[in-house]
Design a protein around this nucleic acid. Structure first.
Lengths: 233, 233
DNA sequence: CGGAAAATTGACGGACCTCAAAATCTGTGG
DNA sequence: CCACAGATTTTGAGGTCCGTCAATTTTCCG
């Protein structure tokens, strides 16, 4: 596969862990890998996992569910910086305190690792390094996406990132976010998001949605729109 | 210092290394710390250090000069993802190949470290970890900035990031970028950048510029504009 | 079923982009 | 030192995509 040809396209990274980064063996973790240092949390949807300013003395991992990383601005605005799904580590911070908040989008199973114990846990700390590089890659994708001019490119890119298989033609995908959250992630208003989703449905690129699932009917066209190759209706 | 109160403001991180990350002792590096694995490059302005798709088997450090990290899109668009200055490490990649290009903005002195040797060089690899967290922090700042609406906020933030001291009132700063590069970094057109720089000069926030230097006359006002607190002329 | 939250749809305005021309800067060679 | 060509910047006029405001409909859950 030609990496160069793919990576400069304004596609978002998918919201799940890179499968090449070996996931943790949960059985082994619980039994032998310092279980007293890793604890697990079950968190309902739309709850805060940590807030901006909280002490950053742990690293987290989503086992089930999606989490958004965001900043809240004093004027009430909310900027969603990243969305992470199952298998992703998050909660890195430059300072002793978090510079972002993390809130669950769906009911989550989350593991937490104490930062202080990481140097003695080579398997975990290797995954932390890999996850940091992943995070850099993902944030670069987001920045490239925001540099894309049109609202349609952004909305289409968002659904591309949700596809289970990057080459999928048809799929039913879970959409764990509201229109408003999509808007805060894509730097649009929720009205603009709504209008463009409606347009994608009219173009038969997306099908009907029920609850928090939506059908992608034409993956190829969706990817073309994400690349800005066509805009007509 | 109240980290939380500062970090959620849409300020860009400065383009230089965090002074708390200890810089490398060059003397020691050259003599004892596997000198054969680190080599130095002197690179003129506007030259490519590595390109998207090149093998990513090294990590780089700017000693003098500024470097921009960017992606070039097939339609000729260019998105500048990050700008790094003296003391910053760059060139991390998730894949075996770079997902971005790096090009010098000014004449640069650059050190390169072979990735394969890092595990045996604890001082360097510790700095690499610190630099990755810094990069994540910086990219989050950029994303928050791009989420800020107005062109003026972005342009003002850019000049704030150039200030040698975050609280400086007056300073003469080097601006190593063209209007077009500022535009590609801030997601604006170069005309919009030019208009807003002219406006800042009319407001006497910026003074005259000569060659690639510009005088900042009112740092406090500049920071207020970067926060979006005032917009009038 | 019923109230609240979310989503849709429409009309309008504005900030920024596009296109275009003029002015200024920069470096090179005579 | 000056002339000149190319690149960069400035400035203007006009258009448009998206944001804002508002009303309505649909969905979600208790």
């Amino acid at each position: 596969m030609d990496v160069a040809a793919k990576s400069h396209l304004p596609h978002l990274s998918p919201f799940v862990a890179d499968p090449r980064v070996p996931p943790i063996d949960l059985e082994r973790l619980a039994d032998r890998d310092a279980p007293e240092a890793a604890w697990s949390l079950r968190i309902p949807a739309r709850h805060t996992i940590f807030a901006e300013g909280d002490p950053a003395d742990g690293v987290f991992e989503t086992s089930e569910g999606s989490v958004m990383i965001l900043r809240r601005l004093p004027d009430g605005r909310r900027k969603i910086i990243d969305i992470v799904g199952p298998g992703c580590l998050f909660g890195f911070s430059k300072e002793r305190r978090h510079d972002c908040s993390a809130e669950s989008l769906s009911p989550c199973m989350i593991f937490a690792y104490e930062r202080a114990t990481l140097p003695w846990r080579p398997t975990i700390s290797a995954r932390v390094s890999a996850a940091m590089i992943n995070e850099i890659h993902r944030l670069r994708d987001v920045i490239a996406l925001l540099g894309c001019k049109t609202a349609m490119e952004r909305v289409a890119s968002f659904f591309v990132a949700l596809l289970p298989d990057p080459d999928a033609r048809r799929a039913t995908v879970a959409v764990p976010v509201t229109r408003g959250e999509m808007a805060d992630y894509l730097d649009l208003t929720l009205e603009t998001v709504s209008r463009n989703v409606a347009k994608l449905k009219r173009m038969s690129v997306l099908g009907e949605e029920e609850s928090d699932e939506i059908k992608v009917l034409d993956g190829a066209r969706l990817r073309a729109l994400a690349r800005g190759e066509e805009a007509e209706e």
